[in-house]
C-alpha cells in the first residue's frame, strides 16, 4: 500500500460528512458532520506532510484544529440560543433570522 490509501479514506470520510450535512435535519448532527469533514481534511494534510517530507502540513492541521474548536464553541452557542427561542434544533424550523 502507498500513502494514497490515506487520501482515499479521507475522501470517503469527507463524502460521508457532505452527505450528512445535506441529509440530516438535526442542527447538532449537521454540525458533527462538518467536524467529520474537517477531520478528513486534517488527514489529508497529515498525509501530504508525510509525502512531501515537510512539517508544514502538520502545522496547518494544527491550525485547522484550533479554528474547528473556536467554530464549535460559537456554533453550539448559536444552536443553543436558537433552541431557546424556537424550542427546536431542526434546521428546517429556523427559516427566519428573527422571531
Amino acid at each position: 500500500m502507498t500513502p494514497t490509501y490515506y487520501l482515499l479514506l479521507s475522501a470517503l470520510l469527507f463524502s460521508i460528512g457532505t452527505i450528512g450535512v445535506l441529509v440530516r435535519r438535526n442542527a447538532i448532527v449537521v454540525f458533527m458532520c462538518i467536524e467529520l469533514m474537517l477531520n478528513a481534511v486534517n488527514l489529508t494534510l497529515v498525509t501530504f506532510a508525510r509525502v512531501n517530507g515537510q512539517l508544514d502540513g502538520q502545522v496547518m492541521a494544527f491550525f485547522v484544529m484550533v479554528v474547528a474548536a473556536a467554530e464549535v464553541v460559537v456554533g453550539l452557542a448559536i444552536i443553543m440560543s436558537i433552541f431557546r427561542t424556537r424550542r427546536s434544533a431542526s434546521v428546517d424550523d429556523s427559516n427566519l433570522l428573527k422571531y
Binding site: T2, T4, L8, A11, S15, I19, L22, R50, V51, G53
Partner: peptide, 23 residues
C-alpha cells in the same frame, strides 16, 4: 454525495498512485 465520493476517489487514484512518498 456518492457521485462526489466517486469523483474524488477516482481522481486521487488516477493522480496520485505514482507519487513517491518522502517520509
Amino acid at each position: 454525495g456518492l457521485g462526489f465520493a466517486g469523483i474524488a476517489v477516482a481522481a486521487l487514484v488516477r493522480a496520485l498512485n505514482q507519487v513517491p512518498s518522502a517520509g
